[in-house]
Design a protein around this nucleic acid. Structure first.
Lengths: 228, 228
DNA sequence: CTAGGCTCTGTTGTATGCAAGAGACGTTGG
DNA sequence: CCAACGTCTCTTGCATACAACAGAGCCTAG
C-alpha cells in the first residue's frame, strides 16, 4: 500500500500531503475496485470529502494514464489493460530503460555507479536470505537509479507515466519471480553495471534491453496474466 | 494552423468536431500568446463561450503536456520550454523513433514499406521544386508512418505527447532546414527505408536514431533557439 | 410470447456563486 | 528617500445547482 503511494508520485505538490490525484489512484490500485467496476464521482467525493469538481479533474488525469475509462454520459470504470497493451508497455519500457542506461553509461556518473554497486551487493544478500520484499525493493531502486541517472527529466516523466500504467498489473503479479529468475536477474544487473562502468553506452543499452525483455517474458508467461 | 490541429489529435472525441482541449491548445500554439503570457480562465471561457469548468479541465491537461504552467492561486501561463528541455525531448524522440523503426523492420509490413517508398520519391520531387511546405508535410508523414507502423499504440501515445511538447518550438522554428540539410535528410530517410526493407531491425534503429539526432542538431544550432 | 416504445433513475456535463490567496500599488512612518 | 505595511483587485479553487443524456426495466400492443 505504502509502496503504491510512493510509486504514484511524480507531480509537484509541496511534498507534504498527497494530492487528491495520488489518493484516488492509490484507492483504485488498492484492489478494492475490480476491473470493469464503476467509479462513481459522487462515491469518490463522499469518500474523500470533497466536491465532484476536483474528483472529476483527477479522473480525467487517470483516464489519460490509462487506469480508468470514462464513457461520456455513462460513467467511469476501472480499466484492466489487455495482454496486448501490457506487451506494448513492456516494449516501451525496454526502449526507455535501454535509452537511459546508454545515456548514463555515456556520462559515467560516479555517484550513480556507487549506488548501483551497493545495490547489486545488497541484492545478493536479500536473495540469499530469501527476503523477497527487500529484493523487490532493491530491483525497483536499481531501475530507478538508472532512469534518473540518465539526467533527462522528460525521460523520467514518460517513464513514470508508463509505470503508472503498469502499476495495476504489477500489483496483481508481484513476486512473480522464481528463484531461477532471480539469479538470472541479478546477473543481468551486474552486466548492465559493468557496461556502465566501462562507459560502453552501446553495450549498456543492449544489456539493459535484454534484461527488461527477459523480465517481461517472465511476467507475460505467468499464468495469472490475462490472455486476450 | 490546420497542421497544428491535426497534430493535436490523439484522443477519442467522435471525430466530428474538435474537443475543447484541442481548440485551446491550438489557440495557444497559434502564437498569439507569447511565452510567459497569462492565460486567464475567464478570457478563454469568453473566447470559447463556455464556462470556466471545462476550461479548467483543458488547462490541467495542457499543464500535464508541459504547454502551460499553472501557478496555484496565481494563474496559468504559457510555458516556453528551455533549451535543456528541448534537448531532453529530442533525446527521447531519438529513442522512441529508433525503437519504432526497429519494430517496424522486424515486422516488415509491406503496406508501410510501399507508403515510405512513395514518400521518399515524392520528397525528392518536392525538394527539386523547392516546395518547402510540401516537403515538410512529407517529412512529417514519413516519421508518422514509422511510428504507427511499429504497431504499438502505447508508443504512439507517448510519441504524440512528446510531439505536443515540441509543437510550440516546432512552429517557431519551422522551415529551419537549409538546402544542404534537406539533401542529407532525404538520404537518411532512404537509408532507414532500405534497412527496413532488409528487415535489418538493428540497422534500421541505428539509422533512424542517427537521422533524428542529425535533425535535432540542425534545430538546436539554429540561432533562434533560446539559449538557457 | 415477443418486439417496440416509454418512463424513470442514475450518471455525467456545465454553469454559477462564493471564498480565499497572491501580488500590485499606494500610503505612511522612520 | 526608503522600507514596511495595509488595502484592493484579480486570479484561482471548490462547492453546489441544474440540465441532459444513457441505459435499465416495465408496460403494452401485436
Amino acid at each position: 500500500m505504502q509502496e503504491t503511494l510512493v510509486i504514484a508520485q511524480g507531480s509537484q505538490p509541496p511534498a507534504k500531503e498527497l494530492s487528491l490525484l495520488d489518493r484516488v489512484r492509490a484507492l483504485i490500485l488498492g484492489g478494492d475496485f475490480p476491473p470493469g467496476a464503476p467509479v462513481s464521482e459522487v462515491f469518490l467525493s463522499q469518500e474523500f470529502e470533497v466536491s465532484r469538481t476536483p474528483i472529476r479533474e483527477a479522473l480525467k488525469q487517470l483516464q489519460h494514464e490509462g487506469l480508468v475509462e470514462i464513457r461520456p454520459k455513462v460513467g467511469t470504470f476501472v480499466r484492466e489493460p489487455t495482454r496486448r497493451e501490457i506487451v506494448e508497455l513492456f516494449q516501451l519500457k525496454e526502449g526507455l530503460e535501454g535509452l537511459a542506461a546508454g545515456l548514463l553509461a555515456r556520462r559515467g556518473k560516479v555517484r550513480e555507479i556507487s549506488v548501483l554497486e551497493r545495490n547489486v551487493a545488497e541484492s545478493d544478500e536479500a536473495a540469499a536470505e530469501q527476503d523477497a520484499e527487500r529484493y523487490a525493493e532493491l530491483v525497483h531502486e536499481f531501475h530507478r537509479t538508472i532512469i534518473t541517472g540518465a539526467d533527462n527529466n522528460k525521460l523520467v516523466e514518460h517513464y513514470e507515466r508508463l509505470m503508472n500504467q503498469l502499476a495495476y498489473h504489477r500489483l496483481v503479479l508481484r513476486t512473480a519471480e522464481h528463484p531461477g529468475r532471480i539469479r538470472a536477474s541479478t546477473a543481468e544487473h551486474r552486466t548492465v553495471l559493468a557496461m556502465i562502468k566501462d562507459k560502453d553506452h552501446f553495450g549498456a543499452e543492449a544489456a539493459m534491453r535484454n534484461h527488461v525483455y527477459a523480465s517481461s517474458r517472465e511476467v507475460l508467461t505467468d499464468s495469472r496474466t490475462r490472455n486476450d
